[in-house]
Design a protein around this nucleic acid. Structure first.
Lengths: 311, 311
DNA sequence: CTGTTAGCGCGTTCAC
DNA sequence: GTGAACGCGCTAACAG
């Protein structure tokens, strides 16, 4: 049946007929128990409602599916505790491998997986566990591009709405932001810096607070917070780009459809998912291969929200 | 260890210490095989990138998680073949139950699940398999509300961008659309009707085609197609609500943030997910309980895109 | 090339 | 109250 052994054609015929007759379906639970292996990959993302991860998921499913792996999805929701529970489940279910965007570089504990020999690929972010394959964007460059573009437009008091310091993306994007300011010899001001938790509500709270420092532009570190931030601007009666230049990470389909349309840093999300799945497949076959750290270049897409009107 | 049997306290102590010492983790694969049961629920959605399903997922996870069920997610992407493969996997993995938004009322074949005694709840849509629990919106009423609102604003040539006829939501929403026209004694015109496949690209194609019939307003049957439709309007240089009134199903966070903001039919998505998970839990406990068909009322949220300027 | 058998790690049952 | 033996459904290793 599994097409491996050489069998007498007529026997094979007979068996296949019986399979159809009885509606026999192999029990994969039993198979997994016996072979000590499974065709199930876990994909743990930190925010399923962020279209960035939506595309990553699609990329993973594309290549995993065509390699006959089943992808099961977990949504950690930026919650270390939830994430921990999921990792525990993954071990208990003896899944074949894990692709994860770790909630926290320090707190996310992948040692459970490592100890049980489960292959890991991190996406979007790094984890302290060294030696895992990684696929992510060049976040420093992304933030630098965005900030330089705003400076170029003549904005001078550029705010930064970052994510939790525990996520490597937050910190790297902050580095890029600072680098651009330094390059342009614009003074860095601590008051223009703020940190949320990558979720919509915090984008709203943090942006509202940031407005007190009177920025003339803002860079938001992910899409989900950008929505909260836009809500805050609307409540304050501020219009972009007139009152405030606006750039954010991630490029959902509607960003180009609104008036004014949104300038964004687009990541190669689909490709990140694809490469992650490829790396995981390889790592499963060849556990001792040296770790790969892939870095993809993000792209600045200039639209209306960052085009400063000439005074 | 499972806290069932009455054991000598000191023995228990000793065992628990050993568990910690050795880092022992029960093998759920073996447990499933032995007990012929699992704590895994499958959730098969037809479009993971639609924020409507994002909320449904969250609702399911909320109640399933607190009942110690693990939710694994499948994205059928409106593809009957993919869906079929997933259902086959669910049977092979002997999962405890399934929540599904069936791609097609006729073609989606749930009999495989029924034959294997796997409990089913359908969400958002119906399947031909009778006797399953169901949670969905009152689609007829939703479309009727939207259309009546547009008529009320003075729009007369209202187009309808529907989904595939195979999905019950498409057909029900069409019924509501027609009902509103009839109530207002506005003549129904076949040219103003069109059907996509619920995906973004088809929203774009179908809307572009529909414009030839010169509608003065349009109702789009889901969010994903609405994005494609908006892109089409932008390309045609049409503005809403000035040139065209615009209403669509589903209410993602950004609908209220754009200029002009979008009038929508909001479904009680989170609640749909919650109730579905509740019903599935109950059905697992009590397989012969009569089927429940829950219907939740959607809500018209009037914003700028449908407010016809007085001539 | 074919039929038989052991055992994966659990939960359950039956002696003790 | 405790321990040993059995079997869930499958694959791999073996003997015929």
């Amino acid at each position: 049946m599994n097409g491996k052994l050489r069998v007498n054609p007529e026997v094979r015929e007979h068996v296949l007929a019986a399979v159809k007759e009885l509606g026999y379906r192999p029990n994969k639970v039993a198979r997994s128990l016996r072979t000590q292996a499974s065709r199930v990959l876990a994909l743990v993302v930190s925010d399923i409602s962020n279209p960035f991860f939506g595309s990553v998921i699609r990329g993973v499913e594309d290549v995993a599916g065509s390699a006959d792996y089943l992808v099961v999805l977990f949504n950690s929701d930026e919650d270390v505790e939830r994430e921990r529970r999921y990792l525990s489940i993954i071990v208990a279910e003896r899944m074949a491998g894990v692709i994860i965007s770790p909630t926290s570089e320090r707190k996310t504990d992948l040692s459970l997986l490592v100890d049980n020999g489960i292959p890991i690929v991190t996406v979007d972010r790094l984890a302290k566990t060294s030696g895992t394959d990684t696929v992510r964007s060049d976040n420093v460059e992304g933030a630098r591009l965005a900030t330089a573009h705003l400076l170029d437009q003549g904005y001078r008091r550029i705010g930064y709405v970052g994510g939790p310091a525990a996520a490597t993306t937050s910190r790297e994007r902050l580095v890029g932001y600072k680098a651009a300011l330094r390059q342009a010899r614009v003074r860095f001001e601590r008051r223009l810096l703020s940190a949320g938790d990558f979720k919509e509500e915090s984008g709203h709270v943090v942006m509202t607070k940031l407005l007190e420092a009177q920025p003339d532009a803002v860079l938001v570190a992910n899409h989900t917070m950008a929505i909260g931030a836009l809500r805050s601007l609307r409540e304050a009666g501020l219009r972009y780009p007139d009152d405030l230049g606006f750039v954010s990470f991630d490029d959902p389909p509607w960003a180009s459809l609104t008036h004014p349309s949104l300038t964004v840093i687009a990541q190669r999300d689909l490709e990140i998912g694809r490469q992650a799945a490829h790396l995981l497949k390889q790592r499963i076959l060849e556990p001792d291969r040296p770790a790969v750290r892939a870095i993809l270049q993000p792209e600045l897409r200039v639209r209306e929200s960052s085009l400063r009107p000439v005074p």
